[in-house]
Amino acid sequence: MDEKKMNDLLIDYIDGNLTGELREFVTKYIEKSPENKQKYEELKATMELLGHDRHLEPDSSLKAGFEAALTAEIEAENNKKVKPLDQNGWKFSPLKIAASFALILSGVFIGMWLMKNDQNDQEIAEIKKEMEATKRLVMQSLTDNSSASRRLQGVNASYAMSSADDEIVNALIRTMNNDENTNVRLAAVEALSKFAEEPKVMDALIRSMESQTDPLIQITLINLMVQLKEKRALDELKNIIEDKKTMETVKDEAHMAVFKLS
């Protein structure tokens, strides 16, 4: 039985969830060797410690605050309900005539406003068109195998994108991992760091740390992890430290990063 399953069973055993043969099986496992016994004792002590959790009581202002918010919401909800029409029917009165004019006028204004909105729509469409053009430029440049400077241009053009576009992000990740030119890869790392809040981008950056062979890029990535306080990078950093092929300078940076992150 593998270790994971055994751990599963040990936890269930300590929780008292096992019966019959399975329980006996675990008892035998524990008594089989001093190591097993120690593992069990440590696990038991940890789980016993978890039993010391104390229930904290919030103060009463939590409930009072909630009740006030709820009452406000109920009132707002009631106000939304439509009131019945006036039973007396329509009678001409100066007020009502004024109201009719106001209604007509507001109609005119709404019309004008809608026309203006149409203009806004056109502007939005143009911005969209521009974005599409930038995207095309980035994509074409990034896949231009003949010229590194063109690919570099492509990476730089991606800075114009204000939000992470899936296609561009994927292309940048591919460039970071596979481009033959160090400068292009480095530029891709820097461009991607702008979208590091996206989990997908962060995962790619972390994974890339190990696959990169150029020390300059490795160091850039390591420093980036420290800057972003990205603790998930710890495992990869440890792999870099343990890898015999890693350059000493890179190892030093990785050691420093592990120290800062943990």
């Binding site: 959790d53 904290l56 009581e57 919030p58 103060d59 939590l62 909630f66 918010a69």
Partner: peptide, 28 residues
């Protein structure tokens, strides 16, 4: 639910005031 949620937040953040506010936010 307010007590379990309050405990959830306080034990993740180790900050009782913050736990109070975040619990309030859940119900809102």
């Amino acid at each position: 639910y307010h007590k379990p949620l309050y405990n959830f937040f306080v034990k993740i953040t180790f900050d009782r005031d913050l736990g109070h506010d975040l619990t309030q936010n859940v119900f809102l």
